[in-house]
Amino acid sequence: MKIVLFCEQKYAINILQPLEVEAVKEGGHNVLWYVQSKNIPDFPLKDEVKWTDSIQEIYDFSPEVIFVPCNIVPYYLPGVKIQIFHGYAAEKKDHWVIRRYFDTYFTQGPFFTRGFNALAKKYKDFEVVETGWPRQDWIYANLHTFDPEKEALLQKHGKSKLALYAPTFSPSLTSLPFIKEGLIKLVEEKDVLLILKFHPLTRIEWMNEYKELAEKHEHILWVEDHNITKYQIMADVMISDTSSTVYEFLLLDKPVITYKTIAKDIYWLDIQQPEELPEAFDRVLHDEAYISKRKWIIDNYDPYLDGQVCHRMLDAARDYIARHGVPQKRKLNLWRKYTSIKKFGKIK
């Protein structure tokens, strides 16, 4: 198949890369990445994969399949347009918004499949296939890759546990303006090394504030690496707020602490005051109730830590083409067409 991996934001790199790996492994595929340069000025895979920042080149490539983790894709591109999602944040309303750009949705697990099947019955112009989430394949292959790096870090800092602070970038939802003193209290009172990993869209003033904190505190580390999944695998506990990374971490069967999450259904420990962090850290590590809640998330949100997600995705894409052929473009109303052209431009 002629495949486009549609990479609009930096976080999408890690979601799409397992599909590249699987396509190469299968053989017989022609894969081209679309990388939006204004959002990703230094594409880390630029010397490893075939890519372009030109929508015209994508159109001329005439793909049969386009995999998209973000919310929009140019309607006029040929190929089956497949939404593969950028996370598990079911409490965020835009997760369930149907923008009519996609021919099919590849869902992560039963919870999402039920929701999108109901929406498919309503809109009647897209299909739903449950495959799992592609980043899970990378996790499966690297569950123990970073064990030596983790042990070296802990030994260097004289700590026994590694915590990851990964907040959302959304100004209305983030814990960044409120939680700093709690994080300091945590590393000073507990046997914890703290890693700070922020979303690339986080406000620059918050980025700078926490970079300065890491420079001043020997047991707080700032990382620039785009691959948050690496640090999720390494960490023992994650601290966040209302971010889809919470679910990614729970799916590793590891405990999470959030600060004032807006999630209606909470499967982790949520605190209301930053100074509660040290006590919450001890509690969440051993409380059987939170272990049971994580099991529910794994079973319902994404039970596919089997290394076969991308294989299922490629199979499902082939099946769609076998039944429907390759769409030449997506039928949309004028507003959606305008939005698509405004964002990505026109083609010749």
Rank of each mutant, 00 (worst) to 15 (best):
K216P: 09
K150T: 09
T242A: 06
V73S: 13
V309P: 00
P74T: 11
T168F: 06
E189C: 06
Y75R: 12
L153G: 03
W133C: 05
S243W: 00
L183E: 08
Q273S: 08
Y338C: 10
Y338I: 11
E205D: 14
H324R: 03
T202N: 08
V237T: 01
V73H: 03
T229R: 07
L196Q: 04
L252H: 01
E64C: 01
L143V: 09
F102L: 08
L285H: 02
I321W: 10
A214D: 11
A322R: 14
F111Y: 15
K150M: 00
I271E: 00
Y101F: 13
H157W: 12
I257D: 02
R135Y: 13
K161N: 06
E189T: 04
W268E: 00
T245A: 07
A120D: 04
K122F: 00
I195Q: 01
I228D: 00
W335H: 13
S244I: 08
R318P: 05
L173K: 15
A235P: 00
E48H: 07
I55W: 06
T113L: 07
K159Q: 10
K260W: 02
A120C: 08
T242Y: 04
F112H: 14
K46A: 12
A280I: 03
R100C: 07
T145I: 01
F281P: 10
F344E: 10
Y88T: 02
M207A: 13
N300I: 05
V31Q: 11
F43W: 04
N208C: 08
A316E: 02
R99C: 08
G109V: 06
E151Y: 02
D287P: 10
E57F: 02
M234I: 07
V187H: 09
G345Q: 07
H95M: 15
D125E: 15
F67N: 13
Y11K: 10
L173P: 05
Y88D: 05
E215Y: 14
Y34H: 06
F281Q: 07
T245F: 01
W335Y: 15
K230A: 03
P69M: 09
W33L: 05
H217D: 12
H226S: 11
K159Y: 02
G28N: 05
L186R: 06
Y231V: 02
T107I: 13
I321T: 12
I72S: 15
D253P: 03
Q9R: 15
G27C: 03
E275K: 12
L119G: 11
M313Y: 01
K293V: 08
W138L: 03
F106L: 13
K348Q: 11
K121V: 13
I98T: 09
K331P: 01
Y304C: 00
K50S: 12
W33C: 06
D306K: 06
K122W: 05
D147W: 04
M234V: 06
D47V: 10
P18V: 05
D302R: 02
D191G: 04
K159E: 00
F249S: 04
E212H: 12
A235L: 00
A152E: 15
K122L: 12
I266M: 07
Q136H: 12
V223F: 10
R203I: 10
D282M: 13
D265T: 14
W138V: 02
I341Y: 09
W138H: 02
A166G: 06
E181C: 11
Y75V: 04
Y59I: 02
I195T: 10
R330Y: 02
V4S: 00
I233N: 04
Q56T: 09
G87S: 02
K293E: 11
D147T: 12
L153A: 03
C70M: 15
P200I: 03
